[in-house]
């Protein structure tokens, strides 16, 4: 079993995503909000990582979630607060979307897993003994 057999083509090439749930205005509003949660810094922000599309897709697969989210979005005063149910819902979806995106996972967090290694060294730090 060689490494070559484990080189799979990157199928993440951006396909044009057609919004399933949000209107154009809602997409814009959600993009603004998710960027307030995870803004662009020296690494991409949430909307750079297509989090609004991630949320749209998720809502399209779950009617109850969709209803809850859209009702929350309509009533939302635009100020994110810890303890506010809609802020919590939006933050959860943003975390799920951003930190599983290529931008969030590799550029921001530095994840470089799910690959082919011939050995696993584990912790090599003497001070962790």
């Amino acid at each position: 079993m060689g490494a070559a057999q484990h080189e799979h083509p990157d199928t993440s090439a951006p396909v044009t995503y057609t919004t399933k749930v949000f209107s154009a205005d809602e997409m814009k509003r959600v993009a603004t909000l998710v960027d307030l949660i995870i803004p662009r810094t020296d690494t991409p922000g949430a909307s750079d990582a297509h989090v609004p599309e991630f949320i749209d897709r998720k809502l399209s697969l779950d009617a109850a979630l969709k209803e809850r989210f859209l009702a929350g979005l309509r009533a939302f005063d635009g100020v994110l607060k810890d303890g506010d149910p809609f802020s919590k819902l939006l933050k959860g979806l943003t975390v799920d979307g951003y930190y599983t995106s290529k931008e969030g996972l590799t550029q921001e967090l530095g994840w470089h897993g799910n690959t082919f290694l011939t050995e696993f060294k584990g912790c090599t730090h003497a001070d962790h003994e």
């Binding site: 307030l36 949660i37 995870i38 803004p39 810094t41 994110l80 810890d82 802020s87 919590k88 933050k91 959860g92 975390v95 799920d96 930190y99 599983t100 969030g104 996972l105 921001e108 967090l109 530095g110 994840w111 897993g113 799910n114």
Partner: peptide, 27 residues
């Protein structure tokens, strides 16, 4: 250790640059 997501971030307080930094440090 490092996972292919960061679900733990939902339990961290705040929003914005401070939140993003807190997640990265704890990852």
């Amino acid at each position: 250790g490092a996972q292919a997501d960061a679900g733990f971030a939902k339990a961290l307080p705040g929003f914005g640059v401070d939140f993003k930094t807190a997640v990265k440090k704890r990852y």
